[in-house]
């Protein structure tokens, strides 16, 4: 017993180091796996309010270009609407508006990151405003990420620039499916993998979200093909995609709410319970 105490006293520095290092490495490993409950997150009150305070000051700097972006988007949507209204008029209580599967509402980015291998964003809306886990986040030009954690006032988004994420996507022309991943090299390029060799691919083709998820609606823009090669061993294409979004300058985003998620997740859970 005495010897154990002596040992502990003699190596107390080393033991403290090992103990704290163990905690730090545990948190690191946890942060590198998708969908585990995270202890360390910027959604906590202190860091989120500091980021919000900073965002309140720096927002003014980008106001001009943000306005420009929003005006462009308004124009695009207005043009669509003009053509639509020629054919149909929607009343406030029309079934199309009331019973839509997906609706979106605006959110604001208060902290962005795009240099690491695993990037996260912080939004200024939380559970109070109807945010929930696994909500899709898009900008006016394309998809941005998926909500991973929410607190009362803030939400943390796992960015598409994160090595843990994999999103169902397809080629717009031929409807061939693949999964979207990131290789951590450049913040404006992502990879589309697992597209079968039977697909016809050209540089410049558009890639959009596939309908195989409850997160994003089908046919949201992602990017265009900038380069591709066939993996001869596996018979799948490795496609490099240039994002329509500039992930380095995001501000005004939209959260997509899936109105039938309870029904859908009920079915999914039943299926898992059966297996």
């Amino acid at each position: 017993m005495q010897q154990i105490f002596n040992f502990i006293v003699r190596f107390k520095t080393g033991l403290t180091f090992l103990l704290l290092m163990f905690v730090a490495l545990f948190l690191t490993v946890e942060a590198h796996s998708y969908h585990t409950s995270k202890w360390v997150s910027s959604t906590n009150f202190i860091s989120a309010s500091i980021f919000e305070f900073k965002s309140g000051i720096t927002d003014y700097i980008g106001l001009y270009s943000e306005n420009e972006k929003l005006t462009l988007e308004n124009t695009r949507l207005r043009n669509k609407l003009l053509n639509l209204e020629e054919n149909a008029i929607f009343d406030q209580d029309s079934l199309i508006l009331k019973d839509s599967t997906f609706i979106s509402f605006p959110v604001k980015l208060i902290s962005n990151s795009y240099l690491k291998t695993d990037n996260y964003l912080l939004l200024n809306k939380g559970e109070k405003d109807g945010m929930y886990e696994n909500m899709g986040i898009i900008s006016s030009q394309g998809i941005v990420g998926i909500v991973e954690e929410t607190t009362a006032n803030y939400a943390r988004v796992i960015s598409i620039l994160n090595s843990n994420i994999s999103i169902n996507a397809k080629l717009k022309k031929s409807n061939h499916f693949g999964s979207l991943t990131w290789n951590a090299k450049q913040p404006n390029f992502v990879e589309l993998v697992d597209v079968p060799r039977s697909a016809v691919i050209k540089v410049g083709d558009s890639v959009v979200t596939g309908g195989n998820s409850l997160i994003f609606p089908e046919n949201l823009p992602i990017g265009e093909i900038s380069d591709f090669q066939l993996n001869e061993n596996q018979g799948y294409y490795d496609i490099s995609i240039k994002l329509f979004n500039d992930m380095t300058s995001l501000k005004n985003l939209y959260a997509i709410q899936f109105n039938r998620r309870e029904e859908a997740s009920f079915l999914l859970e039943n299926k898992q319970a059966d297996e």
């Binding site: 107390k12 520095t13 403290t16 180091f17 704290l20 290092m21 905690v23 730090a24 490495l25 545990f26 948190l27 690191t28 490993v29 946890e30 942060a31 590198h32 995270k38 360390v40 997150s41 910027s42 906590n44 202190i46 860091s47 500091i50 980021f51 990151s113 690491k116 695993d118 996260y120 943390r156």
Partner: peptide, 30 residues
């Protein structure tokens, strides 16, 4: 030295909270 380790750990972890990086800053500070 033990106090230094705890202070370094606190500093690193505080940064991790802002950066969403788990424990990488805490580990490197240690």
């Amino acid at each position: 030295q033990i106090q230094a380790l705890f202070l370094a750990f606190t500093m690193g972890l505080s940064l991790d909270f802002f950066e969403n990086t788990g424990g990488i800053h805490a580990a490197s500070c240690l």
